[in-house]
Amino acid sequence: MLSKPPSTRPLGAQAPSPAAFLQARAAWRWPEILFWISAFGLILLFPNRHLLLNEIAILGLFALSLDLILGYAGIVSLGHAAFFGVGAYAAGLLAKHGVSEPVTGLLLSGAAAGLVGFLASFMILRGTDLTRLMVTLGVALIFHELANRLDWITGGADGLLGISVGPILGRFDFDFAGTTAYTYSLTATFLLFLLARRIVHSPFGLSLKALKDNHLRAATIGIAPNRRIVAIYTLAAVYAGMAGALLTQTTQFVSLEMLDFARSADALLVLVIGGSGYLYGGLIGAIAFKLMKDTLSAMTPAYWIFWMGFILVILVLIGRDRLMATLARPFAPLLKLLGARRP
């Protein structure tokens, strides 16, 4: 008998409040949770693939680091390996000279790379994409040559030998199968991802997007671009340095290859494959890139680089978006749910 007056507003058609709308951007979506559960679940599965998975986690973190500056702040770089290398050598030198606990080494290496990134960031404040490409490339070349020449510190072309990494937090020893290594790298990547996710959804993160979108207007509404760019570039350098440190610690070796141009290029390729500006591009791209490389080099050991190049040219010419839409239609909604603007 108690009948309420009918609601004037149609059910389920209510527009969200602006605050709810804005905050929904940062909400966790279930495919994200699934992604991380699967990643951690792999610790228990495929023990013979843990070395490869470890490399994927590290490449993913490295590409994530590049995504922070490229995808969010619009800063192009061809020399991101400089920071990877600084972190890698720092971790190697620390382990060689007494700091054998990996987590301590990881944090210190990140700080070292961050310091270098902070100093380097002042060179990319001004200028066009082309100047930034050249400056970042030049910085990476300088570090490569420094590591080559300062052989009494770095071991030069022979690489840094005699690195002994202790158990993580004094408890977990590295094993030959790479299970500890993968668990360690994945945990570090996950924690750094959480921090990055928090930052890109903050007012600071939004201001970076604004800077990328329209530099001129951002300045007109009072955003001083330089400090923001220095901050994100330094953070990205810390991330890259930690990725380098993880590789050193889990392989117990550092060589000039850590500073190679090819490594900078790989990070860009990974973002081309996975997409930039939604954080998962680096991780998904790293998986695709490593699996492609692994499969191709098993199929045609002599020509895998040819096929890799071929696939990348196709990918860029046809466009990842269109290729995704046609070849991998089932994945498109997944990517959309993960938060990609254009899956």
Binding site: A20, A26, H201, S202, G205, L206
Partner: peptide, 20 residues
């Protein structure tokens, strides 16, 4: 919101969420 936050000196906060 970006311009207002910037004006109020809250535009560089990196720990809070947009919309909070």
């Amino acid at each position: 919101g970006l311009a207002i936050a910037e004006r109020e000196g809250a535009g560089a906060r990196w720990w809070s969420r947009v919309g909070q």
